[in-house]
Nucleic acid binder design. Structure first.
Lengths: 264, 264
DNA sequence: CGGTTGTTTGAATCCGTTCAATACCTGTGG
DNA sequence: CCACAGGTATTGAACGGATTCAAACAACCG
């Protein structure tokens, strides 16, 4: 079984993921995964506000329900897609969480993002018709499959859908430039503080606690994301704890002084 | 007069740029700027292959010529747009070059990209309806103005135009994740080597020499882009020169051993 | 020409890494 | 149930690469 921890594997062996085999109609999966929203299909989905444009007509919603009719379950450590895979769909995280990783020939890796429920996945693939990073589940997860060709053809008539795609993509660009700033200008403590505050904000936006949450990623993955070594991340967690900024016990984190964190 | 060099200024004072005042019909500008392609309008533009989707019909080309009918000249050190400006247009660099800079409240800056002729500008703005970075000319430059609302409405009928927009945006995402990898995993020498090789490749793609070119940006701006201090950049240029990898005289750079650079 | 901006180089410092040892946690099989 | 193994996390000490501080030089422009 593949592990999430080490930041070095998952090369080669493209296209071997049995894509269709694990695609299941939404209704079939509903009873199996307890954490899922009860109601299914976009029209009744609790997360529609984050995933889809606002102000859709009933007709348009009905069409969405037909188009986005399948989810896919991915176990912890498994990949949703790999760099090089042919681009066919974009995804929305329905439950669980992912990391996206780009790699160099020489084995160097960079975690480019962590995605939690409601976040989009796979947008980078549109450019060259193939994915440029691996998307790996940090825990047992479920994604909604959004077939790009179909959603794209909806764009013809639906201006709001065009704007939705633009916004998601543009949002990725903005997110990444923020991360470039972090990597280019911040010192280690600021990076970790920013990371924790960002996670906190996103959990809050999805209705979870902003103060206390469970990290699904290892110290190494955090380091890989922040341009630091895992030891450095660990040391800074400890330091923040000594200073009363956070309480960190393994993967459980409680933010004690958000203001203080922001001022690191 | 504003300077390009120091990596610290250009805050506040949004919206004060007299946008319309400097917008000139393409034909009016044609004789003024010698470096411009002789033929004007997208249908006859030499750079259309890089700026616009392939396979447009004559009808579509004619429509483009009407839509993209103005350029704008920006003098060295002046801004094309600032963070916070209302998003209205995207741009293509027609002549000259730019840097894009994001900044934090605290004055920290990060150069997120350098754009040369043929490169797109302003795509990040689509997300929130306002720009999230400053675009500053590194030399006297000219951009084509692409009014987004109009190009967007062309997307309704023109599938190729929709794909064009997707590809440009997705390309930005890919470019940025590559840069995140550089910032997150490479040591200083590798960053500078990668930077030089990337510039070389892009110049070559635009028909300029891949081996020898003129840097339009200062050492400080390069450092700001690569997450290094200007002294470090300077030292590494000198080191590369000692090792026979490049010949650098001020802003003129000649790549002597591209292979060696790639292996740094 | 002087003044400003940009570049180069050296020496000292410091932050994050590297190397290493130990502890912890979780799931597995005896 | 406990022991064990593998991965994960913490912490210390030494090291090193990039920064900081400083000075001198070059290039540019009015």
């Amino acid at each position: 079984m593949q592990t999430v921890a080490t930041c070095e594997h998952h090369r080669q062996a493209h296209h071997e993921v049995p894509l269709t085999a694990t695609v299941i109609p939404i209704r079939a999966v509903s009873s199996g995964i307890p954490a899922l929203p009860r109601t299914l299909g976009c029209s009744a989905c609790a997360m529609r506000a984050t995933c889809m444009p606002p102000g859709l007509t009933p007709d348009e919603l009905a069409r969405l329900d037909v188009t986005i009719s399948a989810t896919r379950s991915i176990k912890r450590g498994e990949v949703l897609y790999r760099a090089g895979d042919a681009f066919q769909s974009i995804y929305t995280v329905r439950a669980g969480s992912f990391k996206t990783v780009v790699m160099h020939r020489d084995g160097r890796e960079q975690v480019t993002g962590f995605q939690i429920a409601g976040d989009p996945l796979g947008l980078e693939g549109i450019c060259e018709g193939k994915q440029n990073c691996d998307a790996i589940a940090l825990e047992d997860s479920v994604v909604c499959i959004i077939p790009f060709a179909q959603i794209e053809s909806m764009c013809r008539e639906m201006k709001s859908m065009r704007h939705y795609i633009y916004q998601k993509m543009s949002g990725e660009i903005v997110r990444e430039s923020t991360q470039m700033m972090l990597l280019g200008t911040m010192r280690a403590e600021q990076r970790v503080a920013t990371f924790l505050l960002n996670l906190s904000k996103r959990f809050k936006a999805r209705g979870f606690s902003a103060a206390e949450f469970h990290l699904r990623m290892t110290r190494e993955e955090i380091g890989c994301y922040l341009g630091l070594k895992l030891e450095t991340v660990s040391r800074i967690f400890s330091k923040f704890q000594r200073e009363g900024l956070v309480h960190a016990n393994g993967k459980t984190v409680r933010i004690e002084d958000a203001q203080g964190l922001a001022e690191v």
